[in-house]
């Protein structure tokens, strides 16, 4: 815009910068604090905000090493944080992979084929994805309890069961991928079919390579929601070594056993890689976010 600017305009810009920087300090405060807490000794240190002595005890414990304190007492790691992170990554990766495969094939059929009940099914899926899983927790618990009494690796206390529970939520992915399929011209597949490709070959070798970007986005979204999921994991997993990070890490802050310093180091150690993946993915995620759906 080419507008004549008066003098008050410059002051407004300066003021805006100051306000924004102040606000950034405010929202960054928890992260700065948690870092300072993770390098100050002890779990109850109520001293200065900026630590006077630096101690790596919490970090050593978070990495699973034992640590000898200044008073000679040996401190053992209380919780297997890295194992929890690994459990989370494992469950989220597998469920995201299965989810992408299932939703891609479904989306292909919805986007390209004609069959009975197509519109009913699509509207049904749209309706289903609006109901949060937390409302069916009792039923989910009972179902996996029953499954577990026949197949123990798919029941309560198993990662297999958790993965199964997560793969059900693909309705939203089907809609996202279907939208992308519709941007690819039909003529490309038709040309492949004229050259003698079957419908599946046209899908597998012609169409699929063209939609890799959206598959990446859906995969990342599914992976992130798998890592972040709390309610279902909290009712299906109970024993310490089995927990995912989302369920496990709260154990640090029980009132009876309040490990504030240890929590700080564990939170940074496990949260940082996930945050980096998020930040890396935000470029592709943002259009998906605005298209609909809320973080959850």
């Amino acid at each position: 815009m080419a507008i004549v600017l008066d003098k008050s305009h410059r002051w407004r810009v300066v003021f805006a910068h100051i306000a924004i920087i102040g606000f950034i300090c405010l929202i960054m405060f928890p992260f700065l604090m948690i870092f300072s807490i993770s390098i100050r000794p002890g779990n109850f240190a109520t001293g200065s905000i900026i630590p006077q002595t630096i101690s790596l005890e919490h970090w050593a414990l978070a990495f699973g090493f034992s640590y000898q304190g200044l008073d000679g007492v040996l401190m053992e790691p209380q919780f297997p944080v890295l194992l929890w992170l690994w459990n989370s990554v494992k469950v989220a990766l597998i469920s995201a992979l299965i989810g992408v495969v299932l939703s891609t094939t479904c989306a292909y059929a919805f986007a390209r084929m004609k069959f009975m009940f197509k519109n009913h099914m699509m509207n049904g899926l749209l309706l289903i994805q609006m109901f949060p899983t937390v409302l069916a927790l009792v039923a989910i618990y009972t179902i996996f309890d029953r499954i577990g009494s026949y197949v123990s690796w798919l029941g309560i206390e198993s990662h297999g069961g958790l993965i199964l529970a997560y793969t059900g939520g693909i309705a939203v992915h089907i809609w996202t991928i279907k939208g992308y399929f519709e941007t690819v011209p039909v003529e490309i597949e038709e040309a492949a079919k004229v050259d003698g490709a079957t419908a599946f070959q046209a899908f597998r070798y012609v169409l699929l390579p063209m939609i890799v970007p959206i598959l990446m986005v859906v995969f990342l979204l599914a992976f992130i929601s798998g890592i972040n999921e709390y309610p279902v994991a909290s009712i299906l997993l109970k024993s310490t070594d089995n927990l995912t990070l989302a369920v496990g890490i709260k154990n640090y802050l029980y009132p009876q056993k309040y490990l504030w310093g240890d929590f700080a180091a564990a939170a940074i150690l496990s949260g940082l890689p996930i945050t980096v993946v998020f930040l890396f993915a935000q470029k592709w995620m943002v259009p998906g976010l605005t298209a609909g759906g809320v973080k959850g």
């Binding site: 928890p30 992260f31 948690i34 807490i37 709260k250 802050l253 929590f263 496990s270 949260g271 998020f278």
Partner: peptide, 16 residues
Amino acid sequence: IPYTVPAFISILIFKG
């Protein structure tokens, strides 16, 4: 950034 940090971690940070 607050959106990219897993919510279960930031909530617990606030709890502390």
